[in-house]
């Protein structure tokens, strides 16, 4: 088990290096010169000499691999540079934005669980019923609907036409509801499909027939036997969803003007704020990889086949 974790951590580091390298290369391919962009923002009409000085100061005159190594060395010590837009340390900005993202992702996770578990059980138990068919249509719709569009629709419906919510709002529970729902709906839709299929597959397993033959009550068969065996794949997928939701927060946060890491990244991209872009990519990648690792760990922990006879790893 420990060897397994070591292997996973090793591959995790490789993934992170790969992702940040790509982020570095892509931001350098762009035609806009960040030194010039910064110079124009701080001075009215910068001379080429002034731009060159800024370039030097930012280390942008070095070859790209040198820039990357410098950045990596800083990142290892927790220094992600200074944001060109806010003039704050990138790490400080991120620390300020992350809680907002965690808040909606956390609430979205709650919605996903609340929506998925009962609906999946019901539609599996009533397979082929009107309810099952209707839910299937809704989930297909929910999976295929683009996130930003869903966000706009919800905004128009519940903040403009029926003004339950404010279009731009932050800081109270009510402001969390629309953005978290927007993130949750596609995830809930696909997890309903998955959980329903898993439950149905488990319903015909030998151990369920044997439980019936032993006279176990239906509710116990559903919860103890069917659901208990259907949850492990769900938990894996759910942990992966956490990663996706954070990585995909950019679009939804922009639609709802939500001050999290996603909209922070979008602003940085628009403003050519290279240190912030790289910092955001790093944090999102770390979180994404972390939740994937967590998915594997949780799965092996709840699966008795991964345990030895003593019940330990």
């Amino acid at each position: 088990m420990l060897g397994y974790i070591r292997n996973r951590l090793f591959s995790l580091i490789i993934v992170l290096i790969g992702v940040t390298m790509l982020s570095f290369i892509f931001s350098n391919i762009s035609s806009v010169d960040p030194a010039e962009a910064l110079a124009r923002r701080s001075m009215l009409s910068p001379t080429p000499k002034q731009i060159e000085e800024i370039r030097k100061e930012m280390g942008l005159n070095l070859p790209i691999y040198q820039q990357y190594l410098n950045w990596l060395w800083g990142a290892l010590r927790g220094e992600l540079g200074i944001s060109l837009l806010t003039r704050n340390p990138v790490a400080a900005d991120l620390a300020e934005k992350l809680p907002a993202t965690f808040l909606i992702v956390g609430l979205a996770s709650l919605w996903i669980i609340i929506i998925t578990v009962p609906l999946s059980i019901l539609s599996a138990l009533k397979k082929g019923s009107f309810f099952d068919h209707t839910l299937r249509m809704i989930t297909i719709f929910g999976i295929s609907i683009p996130n930003f569009w869903l966000g706009f629709i919800l905004l128009v419906a519940f903040a403009i036409m029926l003004p339950f919510f404010k279009v731009v709002d932050y800081g109270n529970f009510k402001s969390l509801i629309l953005p978290s729902f927007t993130i949750a709906i596609p995830m809930a839709a696909s997890s309903i499909r998955l959980l329903r299929a898993t439950i149905l597959a488990n319903m015909n397993k030998d151990f369920v027939i044997y439980a019936k033959a032993r006279g176990i009550s239906n509710s116990r068969i559903i919860w103890q036997h069917i659901l208990k065996n259907s949850l492990p794949p769900m938990i894996t997928v759910f942990c992966q969803y956490l990663g996706y939701m954070i990585a995909g927060s950019a679009i939804v946060e922009t639609v709802f003007s939500w001050p999290g890491i996603g909209s922070h990244l979008v602003n940085a991209i628009i403003g050519r704020d290279l240190p912030t872009i790289n910092g955001c990519v790093l944090v999102i990648a770390v979180l994404f990889v972390f939740f994937n690792l967590l998915a594997d760990l949780v799965n092996s922990m709840i699966n008795p086949k991964m345990l030895n006879e003593k019940g330990e790893f």
Binding site: D206, F207, I209, Y210, A213, R214, G215, N229, N303
Partner: peptide, 22 residues
């Protein structure tokens, strides 16, 4: 109440008849 008490069953495949999570 009768099934599993007054009539009980021995299944064909013991390896799959038990709930792997229990």
């Amino acid at each position: 109440a009768v099934i599993g008490k007054d009539i009980s069953m021995i299944m064909q495949n013991p390896m799959t008849a038990f709930n792997p999570m229990m």
